[in-house]
């Protein structure tokens, strides 16, 4: 098989691209998480402003990924930085929205009960609201990660490296081997991330919510 010979010959290049891809995804999703969860908590305390802010962030999300990458390229030049900025921005919305929905959908009765136990609002947040919102937050992270694996492939276009680079080389030289060497690992990567986070999701869902939660 031609393709297998190709993989063998180029395994170092494919491995580097794969690692670079993983780095892009993990880094930008981490930034997304660090920003979105505190922001989501803050928004859940100010529901009126929250709806407006979420609507604006939703509009930003309708900007096609290629456009964002183009803008970042013009603003920050070629390379890692523009890609990481764009990917981080994109990872925000799903996590932010799910944190917000998760927190606002906690049953008022449960918060009431917590308050009745004499909990302070910080205790309520960390012992009642956040644990109940965790499944929703994690599924937001899952959606974000799958998206970012996909967007990171586009980032190859602006010189960020990663598996998109291989696909892009393949597309521009009409080389099927390069296309497959980039496409198959990136698809597998998306499935692995999705499955892994799905596993975590099942693990962290509070016992009382299991069975009825997604």
């Amino acid at each position: 098989m031609n393709f297998i010979a190709f993989i063998y010959e180029h395994h170092a290049e494919i491995l580097t691209s794969l690692l670079k891809h993983i780095y892009l995804v993990v880094f930008s999703v981490a930034i997304g998480i660090l920003f979105s969860i505190p922001a989501g908590i803050l928004l859940s305390r100010h529901k009126k402003t929250a709806e407006k802010i979420l609507a604006v962030v939703g509009i930003v999300q309708t900007i096609p990924g290629l456009v964002m990458l183009g803008l970042a390229l013009i603003l920050f030049g070629v390379g890692n930085t523009p890609a990481l900025v764009v990917l981080s921005v994109y990872s925000v919305l799903p996590i932010l929205r799910n944190t917000y929905t998760g927190l606002t959908e906690v049953q008022p009765g449960l918060i009431e009960a917590g308050r009745g136990l004499g909990m302070t609002s910080t205790q309520l947040l960390f012992r009642v609201e956040l644990p109940l919102a965790v499944p929703s937050i994690i599924s937001g992270i899952r959606i974000s990660t799958v998206y970012i694996v996909s967007w990171a492939a586009l980032a190859g276009l602006i010189g960020a490296g990663g598996l998109g680079d291989l696909i892009w080389t393949g597309l521009s030289t009409y080389n099927t081997n390069y296309i497959l060497a980039g496409a198959i690992p990136s698809a597998v990567l998306a499935f692995l991330f999705s499955g892994l986070i799905g596993g975590i999701l099942r693990f962290v869902t509070p016992r009382g919510l299991r069975g009825n939660a997604a």
Partner: peptide, 11 residues
């Protein structure tokens, strides 16, 4: 839907 866009389109 999990497959990255560029990967699916390239294939």
């Amino acid at each position: 839907q999990t497959i990255p866009t560029l990967a699916l389109l390239a294939i």
